[in-house]
Amino acid sequence: MPFTLEQPTTVEEALRRLADPTGGPAVAIAGGTDLLLDLDEGRVSAGRVVSLRRLPWNRLQWQGDSLVVGSTLPFARLGADPAVRARLPGLVDAVDAVGSLALRHRATLGGNLGRAAPASDVVPILLALGATVRLVGIGGHRDVPVGRFVRSSRQTDLAPGELIESISIPSAPVSAYVWQRVRPANDVSQVGVAVARSDSPSGWHVALGGVLPAPTRVVEAEALLARRRPNDAEVELAAQAAAQRATFVTDKRATESYRRRLVSTLVRRAVARALRTEVGG
């Protein structure tokens, strides 16, 4: 179905155009790398597409110890930023895992969150890092933790007429994201495992992607990783707990039992990778 493209330059205008009842249903587009395919194949039908690319959201900034990522900042810019690489290595692992470099020049963090794909490589690390999504609507702003924002497969807390403005991510120099898939650049992950160690309150967060009905934290595994530098036996127990806890699907990419085995291996790799920058113990 053909659509018209609207390219507002202010947030107020974008919100007004999204809410405008004349001209039929409207959908917001950021990088478009996922949504354009759905528009082509009729999985999403909208007569109007409102581009967010000219809004002043294509930027990142530090607020104290947190990184605030504008929702339309392309992944490639996020992954190439030296401060982000040093303070949020797990986020960079996840961003670099998305598609190919050319795709990352367009795909955005806000778009990935808004589409809420169950195999998203980005949602698990945002869960592990305790990120918060800032939404804007006609009535003002609201802040929603990522775990409440992503409700289920392709379902989010975004209300009609609302937009994702930015994502706030507390820094975590000890963090990692690891994944397994058939081909690196043009497939999605069978499963992904994100881990991050926080100092206040102290403790590990572990989150899985490629599980049902949406990426999720596994508190059972987190409890078993109690210490700042867990030993091999503790990591092994946490890996098994994560594998037992999650609900996996069997599809063309992998069977349920293979995914379960992958998770256990990837939890071990993720913890080792997160600790790689720390010397000694």
Partner: peptide, 24 residues
């Protein structure tokens, strides 16, 4: 967006022209 055959440079950046709206 899977094969890269349509890659062009837009303002110097590698870009998948099949996933790019011209007017954007």
């Amino acid at each position: 967006g899977d094969c890269g055959a349509c890659t062009v440079l837009v303002d110097g950046e590698t870009t998948l022209s099949c996933l790019t709206l011209s007017r954007e």
